[in-house]
Design a protein around this nucleic acid. Sequence first.
DNA 1: GTCTATACGCTGATAGAC
DNA 2: GTCTATCAGCGTATAGAC
Lengths: 189, 189
Amino acid sequence: MSTRQRLIESTQELLWERGYVGTSPRAILARAGVGQGSMYHHFAGKPDLALAAVQCSAQQLTAVAEEHLARPGTALERIAGFLNREREVLRGCPIGRLTADPDVIARPTLRQPVDVTLAWLQAQLAEILSEGQSRGEFSTDLVPADTAATIVAVLQGGYVLARAAGSVEPFHRAIDGLLALLASHATNG
Amino acid sequence: MSTRQRLIESTQELLWERGYVGTSPRAILARAGVGQGSMYHHFAGKPDLALAAVQCSAQQLTAVAEEHLARPGTALERIAGFLNREREVLRGCPIGRLTADPDVIARPTLRQPVDVTLAWLQAQLAEILSEGQSRGEFSTDLVPADTAATIVAVLQGGYVLARAAGSVEPFHRAIDGLLALLASHATNG
DNA sequence: GTCTATACGCTGATAGAC
DNA sequence: GTCTATCAGCGTATAGAC
């Protein structure tokens, strides 16, 4: 693997664990096993490297979500399959996590991929809900865009509860509670 | 106001904005308008001061929630009133925000008040849901503990979506979506 | 109690050798 | 391309004057 790629991967891991503010170039270099010169050769500085890492994480998250959401089944089944996919719950969401970071929120270029990824996910879920409604699988009482925001919020908030508790349990309770609410609106579940 | 109190309040604000990792004693002192000596006189160091600030924020959040949840009305009305209470959405949750911080998660003494506060909130909501069920206001199909976790997760995740988007809109959509799901389970709404 | 002085390692970056 | 040297400033804490 190239030095450039190793730098990006190390940065991805550190951003996930410690956020932008808590990640220093020194720590990135130590994890990647390269010297400072390499980093400043491939990237303009910390913000530039962080942007590359965030874009990479956003791309990976999108790909995984797309793969799960594209599986066959009813709207409810596809959503449940996505929510119950394997996750490292206590590590949290590598993208959602960045919203806690003041420097990410303050820099439009860093915030943008976070915004785009979460908006894309909501749009995908809204589309699935809408299709489910037109197939008669789902109650037309629900507003797809609102329900989609609720679903993504449960996911992001579930991570918060799990990390606070030091246990995956509240995450799964939040998902189960959501699926129970959604199930009663499904006509073919 | 005492110097000690000013230090705690400055720390509360900075922890909310920047988290534990992003908050330096220097920044705290500058905001409080006191010298270093005062801080190390009243507190053992940064972790000790942060603990006092987090406990204070937890106490304040609990008091506000308690006040809203104790208002009269059906279970659904009380929950809706709590969810729609005035919030500084784009600032996020001063308690939930701390779960993104690696040093908070790593220190049991700092994590504990976060854990206790979010667990208490879930317990309160579960109690309201359970009471609603026994009064016939709410479907007995729902598991109160699961639904309570879902509600708190929507709140915490709503902040994430709002901060990512730089807009309060997705927060309110997530809340509206949740309330729509809950409303269909209420028999007196 | 509160202040200033001092300390040492880390942050984030530049310069220049190889 | 990658390395090491060097830098001004910050992070966190201690010492000791007032």
